[in-house]
Every structure is written in C-alpha cells, then in structure tokens.
Design a protein around this nucleic acid. Structure first.
Lengths: 344, 344
DNA sequence: GCACCTCACTGAACCGGTAAAGTCTCTATT
DNA sequence: AATAGAGACTTTACCGGTTCAGTGAGGTGC
C-alpha cells in the first residue's frame, strides 16, 4: 500500500532551522527540562514555520507512548447500524480522546476469539496503547487475555462480569427494578420483558433482577421473559407471541432491552388492534431520539450514553497511565415517562 | 501514554532462530525474490513458533505502506447515532479492509476545516495511507487539500461535487425521479419532499431532481420541499407543517431523505388523525430495518449500504496503489413498496 | 582453466523520533 | 584557586523494520 509520500519535514529540519540538535527539539516537544526558555521558543517557532509536528509512528517506535486506542465490536453489522447506542457511545469516547489528540481504531469482529486475536496483534504490534472492551459474556476470555498481555483496558460492564478488569458500568439491576416498580405503581402486575442477547452478561443481570423485582411485588406479580438478538424483527416476534394469549393471561406491560425492539413492539400492538397504553404499556431502554418519534411516544429508561463513553475513555487513560484496577459506576438510567405507559 | 510494554519478539529473534539475517526475514515476509524455498520455509516456521508478526509501526517508519485508512465524519453525534447509514457503511468498509489486514481510524469532527486539518496531520504523520471523504458540500475545501497533499482519497458523492477526486456514488437524481414517478403512477400529483441538510451536496442534487421530476409530470404536479438537519424532530416539524394546510392544498404523498424522518412523519400523521396510506402516502430513504418495524411498514428507496461501503474501500485501495481518478457509480437505490404508499 | 553470471544471502545505512550518557560553560562553595 | 555542581545542549545508541550494495558459492560458456 504505497502512494506518493507526503512532503516530509523531519525533526532534523526543525533542528537545523532552530540551530540546535534534534535531541533539543525532542526535549522541547516533550516538555522536558534541560532547555532555556529562549531555545524552546526558537524551536517552537522553527517548527511552526516549517509546519512540523512529531511523527507518531517514529515516536511509537522509539518506545514512548502510542496515541491510539482500540475498540472492537462484536455484533452483526445489521444490528449495529440500528442501535443508536454505539455511535453515541463512540462519540462520547472520541470527545475525550480528542483532548489528548488520540485516535480510535475501530474494528467490527465476528467472534470473541477474533477479538482477542486482534487485541493481541494490535498490542504486540504497538498499534494501540489500550483498549475498550464491550459486550461481556459469561466466561469471557478477554480478562485473561488482557492480563496475560498486560494490555491496559477498560471493560464496559458490571464488575461481576469483567473478571477483575477496570470496569465502567451502569447499575442495570437497579434500573430494571425501578422500571418494574414504576409499572407496578401504575397498577401493573403482569409484566413481560423482551430482553437482549442471552449470551451477554448484562442481559442475564437484567433477567435476574427482573424476576426478583416482579416476584417481590406486593401483591406478587407475574413475569414473562424472552431473549432476542436485539433486532427489531425479534422484538416484534416476541411481542406478538406475548400478546396473542387471552387478555386475562397476557402481560399488561412490556419492558424492552433497547428502543428498536420497543418501536417494533409498538407496531405489533397496533397491528393486533391493541391500544398503547390503554391495552398494554410499553417501556423502552437506551432512550434515543427514536422514542420521541413514535406515536404514542415511548416511555424509556434513559441514559446518558455520550457521557458514559466519555467516562470510559477517561478511565482508559487512567489504566494506561498505570492506575490499578477499579470499578467506576456511572449514573443509573432514569425513568422518562412518556405516552406509552399508563395504568392497565 | 505509557504502560507495561508487550513482551517483544522482533525480526532479529526470528532471524536468529531461522539462522539467517534479518534482511532475509524481511524478504520472506514481503514475498520478494532472492530466497530459496527451503529458507523461506525455515523463516516462516521460526516466525510461527515465536508468534511473530512484523510491526506495522516499524514498517511504516521504514518507508513502506501504511495499513490504516482514515474516516472523519462531520455530523453531530446525536444524529449520527440515529442514522443506521453510518454504521452499516462502516461495516461495509471494514469488510474489505479486513481482507487486506487494514484498520480504520475513525474520528468525529465538528467542521470541514477540522477535517482538512486532521487529514493533513494524519497524512503528514503517516498515520494513514489514504482516506474516505463523505458528506460533500458546495465548494468543499477537501478536494483541493487532498490534491495539494497528494493524499489518496476516495470521495463519496456525485462527481459534480467531488472536484475531480476519485468518487463512488449512487445516482440520487435518478432515484428521486423514480420515487416521484412511482408516486405519480399511483395517482399522486401533490408531492412533498422532506430533504436533508441543505448544505450537503447530495441534498441539492435531490432537490433539483425532485423539482424537475414533479414539474414534468403529465399532467404536471405540485411540489413542496423542506430542508432539515436529518433529525427525527425536524422531520416531524416539517411533516406537521406540510399537513396542516387544507386537504385540497396539501401534499398527498411525502418523500423523506432518510428513514428516521419518515418514522417521525408517520407518527405525526397518526397524531393528526390522518391515515397512512389512505390520507397520505409516505416514502422513506436509506431503507433500514426500521422501515419494516413501523405500522404500517414504510415503503422506501432501498440501497445496499454495506455493499456501497465495500466498494468505497476497494476504490480507495485502487487510489492508494496509484490508480488515476475515476468515477465509480454503484447501484441506484431501488423502490421497495410496503404499506405506507397507496393511491391518494 | 578462466572469465562471467546468477542465485542466495548478508551487512550496513536509513526511516524519524526518544533517551541516556557525555561535554562544556558558568556559578557557587570552601 | 581549586572543586563541585547545576544548567544547557550535543552525541550516540537504540526502536524494528526495509532496502540496497555487496559477497561468495556454484554453474555455464568457450
């Protein structure tokens, strides 16, 4: 992969123009002591005049920092595009990276093994200085690999899932409980949840919390739960099957694990002649703009995804600069009631 | 940004184990002539045993290829997350990059100037071997910058917008015309279009084509056009204002520039008590799964975004390997009728 | 039997930086 | 006045590859 190389200005040119050695230029640009202010100024001026900036490649090779962080995402592209979550998350990450003039190396992978392989080659090839790990599963191989490699990472997920890695997480259990309590307060006792991919750790956390929350209602409620692949189609199928039972034997409220499925659920209800929220209440998750575009609008557990991404990036910088492992909870999603929830 | 460096295996180790010089290892790994098959085999075996792969950083510094391509996206994060387009596009790009073990450097920027600055520093710092340019505007500064730098790029957009750069594009004018013809064939003569950001080049192409298409209907039709920022809210506002006119004085069909706005339009129609498609037909663009989740389902101009991304990546490799500028049209979006369009 | 080639491979320079050790000058100390 | 020490730089050795000018062995032609 070659092409006309860019016109090269190197540290040597800057050094020559400033009348110093290249070591001096290096010192100046790394804010290290050992230069007079006057020399520093001369060097910076020369650099500015030549339009020079140190080459990250050479810096990396010479053994200092790597200004790139990695992110591999393991979900089918078809679903990724639909989940507003990721782009929003990435933009939050970027907002912090930019301040440190860091870049994001993104890769879509098809399996956790491909991901660990990628991390290993990125890290050994010094392509990244650290990595963000998302979508943890039960017995996820990544904590072990990260440990073995000594790769600085931040895991997005509850500490019970992330095997001792530094983690940033939202309290899904509490949020699920809050959602159930809210629906219960409206009078619902037959509550369903259309969950995400069963293999994902945060899905099982939500599943457990949901069961517990519905079971401990006073008077006790009845719970249904379905696992999906997060796609709208799956959400529609799940909703359809939940709502085809006899009126007395079906849920009066449904909680969805993302907003796409909630939108799909809304349309299934309409197709079945059920009114939302009169006949059935729907509650979405990962509140995006989409929830305000439907009719009725969707109540949702909303969540500052951008800020979440930013916190992840900040934590990653901590890990890269040697901070020990830690657990960083961020704000629990909060309930945003809109038009899709009402008393049964 | 330092951390425990990875355990390093270098070309020297491989050379030692294979009993050759490091030059020989380099020759073997770059498939260059000058080595016997036996030696080649020994080298590869040694590399495999040590788990070595050449360091892209060192390779880059030594003046050969750069295995990274850049992509800067200049849209507010809030909108990006919602547009299924980008993630799908990126996944298409990735599908080709992966074959060449290339990575994607992604950055969200806030202005075209920030983008040109980024391209320049990425290129001069040899961080990228080429770049993908999206969202062209009138008088876009990027073609000039790319030329000046000699940066291999591929521009996503119609050749009239991309100033002589190698371009990959879909024929928006034809697609718009087809959309209008379809609606006209159903009997619509009062047709509106809720367009995207006016500053974007492809928006104005569509705007012009739409006017032309409606004007030349037989009998002639009446056209409305509104520019938005692609957000669902803007789509909702536009729809509301189009539909509040007296029945005889409002459009009977509306075309949207993306699917989010079409979803929003659908909900506005419902909120206003208008039935879709009986009272008003809606037609979306950039068909994603979302269009099948609404009720009624949304007819759309659909488009193989993944394949589009792949073609862009392939074209970029062409540009990087020195192919001259060229124009690469890809398949025109095709009409996918669903439940939101019918005779007026 | 000798010059000439080719083939397979080595050695050293280089890419653009960083970092540690070395040099030189000037000031403060005793 | 001799000595130490600090400050301001320079020198040099890498980092992990690529590249290119050798080098030596073996084969060919005459």
């Amino acid at each position: 992969m070659t092409a006309t190389p860019p016109a090269r200005v190197t540290i040597k040119d800057v050094a020559a123009r400033a009348g110093v050695s290249k070591g001096a230029v290096s010192l100046a640009f790394n804010q290290k002591p050992g230069l007079s202010q006057a020399t520093r100024d001369r060097i910076f001026r020369a650099a500015r005049e030549l339009g020079w900036a140190p080459s990250p490649t050479a810096r990396t090779l010479a053994g200092s920092r790597v200004d790139v962080v990695g992110l591999a995402v393991c979900r089918p592209a078809r679903l990724l595009g639909l989940e507003p979550f990721y782009m929003e998350f990435i933009s939050g990450v970027e907002s912090v990276l930019v301040e440190r003039s860091c870049s994001l190396l993104l890769r879509l992978v098809r399996s956790p093994d491909e991901e660990t392989g990628l991390m290993e080659s990125w890290w050994r090839g010094r392509q990244i200085g650290g990595s963000i790990l998302v979508d943890f599963r039960a017995d996820d191989p990544r904590p072990a690999v990260a440990q073995r490699l000594g790769l600085p990472v931040v895991a997005v997920g509850h500490p019970t899932l992330t095997g001792g890695l530094t983690s940033v997480w939202t309290d899904d259990a509490t949020a699920v409980t809050e959602a159930v309590r809210y629906l219960a307060a409206l009078g619902h006792r037959r509550i369903a949840r259309v969950g995400g991919a069963a293999a994902l750790g945060h899905t099982s956390i939500r599943t457990t919390a949901f069961d517990e929350a519905v079971r401990t209602l006073e008077p006790a409620g009845r719970a249904w739960q379905v696992a999906t692949d997060f796609s709208g189609d799956a959400g529609a199928r799940a909703t359809r099957s939940l709502l085809t039972a006899a009126p007395a034997d079906r849920p009066t409220a449904i909680v969805y694990d993302n907003d796409i499925m909630a939108v799909a659920g809304l349309s299934v209800a309409a197709e079945m002649g059920l009114r939302v929220p009169d006949d059935v209440s729907l509650l979405a998750w990962d509140d995006s703009q989409l929830c305000r575009l439907t009719h009725p609008t969707l109540s949702a557990m909303s969540h500052d995804v951008h800020g979440f991404g930013a916190e992840v990036a900040r934590t990653l910088f901590g890990a890269i600069t040697g901070e020990g492992p830690g657990s960083h909870p961020v704000a629990t999603p909060v309930l945003t009631p809109r038009g899709s929830t009402a008393p049964p």
